[in-house]
Design a binder for these strands. Structure first.
Length: 131
DNA sequence: ACAATGACATAAG
DNA sequence: GCTTATGCCATTG
């Protein structure tokens, strides 16, 4: 316990992405920015790529800044991500892009994010959810 | 500690 | 609008 009990960046990403409500979408860069790393968009994408299947995280609600699906991992069945989003009511333009003006997740203010991370750290330390 | 990786973002041609 | 090149950052071998 010498080092600060800061949870891994991946974990932070998972926590935050779980806050994205159905029918809304955000970008990797936005997630990174909310976590205080405005230039860690790639890491965010990698975090979702490494996301274990056991854990449910609405990874499909995260697309690139152009509002387009970036998943090159077509092994998931091609337009799986777009399909999941459409099932939630997110509409794709003919260009294959999402209209941010309509489906962009406003995100959480820093205090909310901070509280979220603090709660996650508490779970890591105490081993119990919410205290 | 170094090199490589990756589901990004942005600028330039 | 599309392709190419460069920057940025946390994680992993």
């Amino acid at each position: 316990m010498g080092d600060y009990p800061v949870i891994g960046f991946f974990e932070q990403v998972y926590r935050l992405v779980c806050q994205v409500p159905p029918g809304k979408a955000t970008s990797y860069g936005a997630i990174a920015r909310m976590l205080g790393h405005s230039h860690a968009a790639r890491t965010v994408g990698w975090a979702l790529h490494s996301l274990p299947p056991d854990r449910y995280v609405p990874w499909h609600r995260v697309v690139n800044s152009q509002g387009r699906v970036s998943t090159n991992c077509l092994e998931h069945g091609g337009g799986l991500q777009q399909k999941l989003l459409e099932q939630e009511g997110v509409e794709f333009q003919p260009d294959g892009r999402i209209d941010w003006d309509r489906f962009a997740w406003p995100g959480l203010p820093w205090p909310e994010v901070e509280a979220l991370l603090r709660d996650a750290i508490s779970e890591e330390v105490t081993g119990s959810p919410g205290e």
